[in-house]
Design a protein around this nucleic acid. Structure first.
Lengths: 193, 193
DNA sequence: TTCATTTATTGAACTTGTTCAATGTTTTTG
DNA sequence: CAAAAACATTGAACAAGTTCAATAAATGAA
């Protein structure tokens, strides 16, 4: 389980065995049942974590009661509300387990400890944040320039494993369209080809 | 000019005088005339920089020839194509000066030097990248949940200084709508109130 | 200052996506 | 296993946003 975390970290940067072990010892395991929440709107996000098993959706509910999915996180993905966590202010997001899940979490305090006492940890999160930012920039441009049809096709192509584990409702909330319209897109795809 | 950079940095983290001076000495000034480019699609982005004077638009041209603005950058904003710069691969973006401008730039090599030799620089960019990521997450949710009317109103409210220096064409490309539709939104606002 | 170019406005026809309501299908849960 | 709940599909009417074309206004360069 900790090995899982170690493997993930060494994908981003290289650390000595001691650094790696010291850092990983700061994480604690948590089991989350399907349909329960790691975070709800209004709470201050006190953790950052990595998914060991299962699947989460990170979403926002707007004034009209509609849900927008900011991202999904399955095995090997990191989860937090970066805004709430870093600025210690109430979150606008919900983080919900879509399957029975397990995560490894680190508290704000322990992360600060790691920043000051394990020299490479700044680099680790600098690099990881850059990667997620680059991915979000791409998604932003796609959302500005592409039709829902294209975005759906590309979502399936890019995340085939995710696609199988999600309902159309959830995918629609990620693409920013109604689930009825997604249903019509699917019909077009499967009858035309 | 370097003081400008120093001030900007100390807004994010605190550094010793020596660290600050060492780091800032790695930057070089560059003057960019209105309508000329800091970066074009296909080039590898070899710099990261801060705007001292003037205004830039960072945009992408899609397959249909339409421009999407990823962001604008005026005085005190940082500019780069993070994807191209960090991964050293051809950019999909254009960075164009919208006014006669001046920037301070650091090369990839010098930035790497700073990461390894000036201990606080990792933190600086970790913190800065977090902030831009948080801002982009907010924009992503706004784009998914709000109408063009709302997004335009909020853009004006949030960036009044920017609004005055941009054409409606450029604002439309940022909001992800046609400039004709933006014109109709503006009419509605100014006749109704 | 003038001519050319870019920017902004407007209307009409069109496309994309929403909303609502009805119906069928699948999944959960007692 | 049965009933309830959640999910998916479909159609019709509607709203949001685009496209194209024409015209006016503002800006820039000689």
């Amino acid at each position: 389980m900790i090995d899982f975390l170690k493997q993930n970290i060494t994908k981003h940067i290289s650390l000595s065995d001691k650094e790696l072990t010291d850092f990983c010892s700061l994480f604690q395991s948590k089991i989350i049942k399907k349909k329960s929440f790691l975070l709800r709107e209004g709470e201050i996000c006190k953790f950052e974590g990595i998914v060991i098993k299962g699947l989460f959706r990170v979403y926002h509910i707007d004034n009209n009661g509609f849900e927008q999915v900011l991202y999904f996180a399955m095995e090997n993905w990191w989860i937090t509300d970066m805004d709430s966590f870093t600025n210690e202010k109430p979150s606008h997001l919900y983080i919900e387990a879509l399957e029975d899940s397990e995560v490894l979490l680190i508290s704000k305090q322990d992360k600060e400890f790691a920043y000051t006492n394990i020299s490479k940890i700044e680099k680790l999160f600098r690099v990881m944040t850059q990667k997620t930012h680059i991915a979000l920039q791409r998604r932003m441009i796609d959302n500005l320039s592409k039709t829902a049809d294209q975005r759906y096709a590309e979502f399936i192509e890019k995340y085939p494993q995710l696609y199988q584990r999600l309902t159309n409702l959830q995918i629609a909330a990620y693409l920013g369209i109604s689930h009825e319209f997604l249903s019509k897109i699917r019909k077009k795809i499967y009858t035309k080809k």
